[in-house]
Amino acid sequence: MSISKGSKVSWNTSQGKTHGKAVEKKTKDFTFDGQDFKPTDDDPYWIVESEKTGAKAAHKESTLEGS
């Protein structure tokens, strides 16, 4: 699946599936919300925004689904 900025995506959380949009692709090491992330070329991270709460989180591209 190809994700681009603004794509509608979904991901699993402990409360069930959450829907939102892809905000920013990260391909270099970064810190988000106090956590360090190390993306790879094969599995970059995306900053995603929940459509329900507006909260942002970092998720590996491989854990996101198009919705």
Rank of each mutant, 00 (worst) to 15 (best):
S62V: 09
K17F: 14
A22L: 06
K52Q: 10
D43M: 01
D42K: 10
S10N: 14
D43T: 00
K25D: 00
V48L: 09
A57K: 03
M1L: 07
F37E: 09
K26S: 02
T40S: 14
K21F: 01
E49G: 03
A57T: 13
H19A: 03
A57E: 07
M1Q: 07
T18K: 10
W46A: 03
D42I: 10
F30G: 11
Q35R: 07
K25W: 02
K52V: 13
G54C: 10
F37I: 07
I47E: 04
G34P: 05
S50P: 08
T27G: 12
V48P: 00
S7W: 03
G20W: 00
A22W: 01
K26R: 14
E51G: 00
E51A: 00
P44Y: 08
F32E: 02
A22M: 06
K56V: 01
V9C: 08
K17L: 15
G20F: 01
T63V: 08
E49Q: 12
D36N: 11
K52C: 03
E49S: 07
S2I: 10
K60R: 11
S2H: 08
G54W: 14
H19S: 05
Q15P: 06
A55K: 08
T40W: 10
E61C: 00
S4T: 12
K38P: 04
A22P: 11
G34T: 03
F37G: 05
M1P: 11
T40N: 09
V48E: 05
G34R: 03
Y45N: 09
G6D: 01
Q35E: 11
K56Q: 15
T13D: 04
V48S: 05
F30C: 11
G34I: 06
S14C: 06
T53F: 15
I3T: 13
S7K: 01
S14N: 15
I3K: 13
S14R: 10
S67E: 07
A55P: 02
A22E: 03
P39K: 01
E51H: 15
S2N: 08
E61G: 02
D43R: 13
E51D: 09
I3L: 15
F30R: 02
N12Y: 04
G20I: 08
G20S: 11
D36L: 03
E65R: 13
S2A: 11
A22G: 12
D43K: 08
D29P: 13
S7N: 03
V48G: 05
N12M: 09
F32N: 02
D42S: 12
F37N: 10
G20L: 05
V9I: 15
K60E: 14
G16C: 07
D41H: 07
T40E: 13
S62W: 01
T63L: 02
K38T: 12
E61T: 08
D33V: 14
E61W: 04
M1I: 06
K26C: 05
T53C: 02
K17I: 15
A57S: 10
K60M: 14
E61F: 04
L64A: 09
P39N: 04
A55M: 10
